[in-house]
Amino acid sequence: MIKLDPTRKFFISEDLIGYADKLIEEGTFRRRVDLLLVGFSYAVKNQIQPADEYQRHELIYVNNLKDALLPIEATANWYARKLGYQLENDSQLLEFICEVGIAGTRSLQDLWRERRKSQIQWDVLQFVTESDNLK
């Protein structure tokens, strides 16, 4: 399993920065990376292809993810294989995670449109509950 280089940074696409900031301001998410990761998980759940067009905007260091890092890495490896991607190294893995995250986040942005904090959090909690129930 390829692992991420903890000294590298996650990134999101430029087009999502404004939206991420808005959600943070409303208190929906604490950090931009949280939105990216929800986007990642949403994409995995809904088998969304990684984004291919974007302008990188760097976020926090990989090692900031702490306990969430390993499950994300493991899932990303698994999902890449599932989609038929041959990941060669850590930077490819990082790109894959972020691209999937960007694609998922874009879908969510589309889904949530004018929704406010409580509705969005409600949705996220629904995703969690669904995952729990699916088990």
């Binding site: 990642f40 698994w78 996220v124 909690l125 969690v128």
Partner: peptide
């Protein structure tokens, strides 16, 4: 609590893929 949950949501949402992994 909800904020914590939201923050842990990405991993929780991956329960099923993780089980596969």
């Amino acid at each position: 609590q909800i904020d914590d949950l939201i923050q842990s949501a990405p991993v929780r949402m991956l329960m099923r893929p993780l089980e596969h992994v």
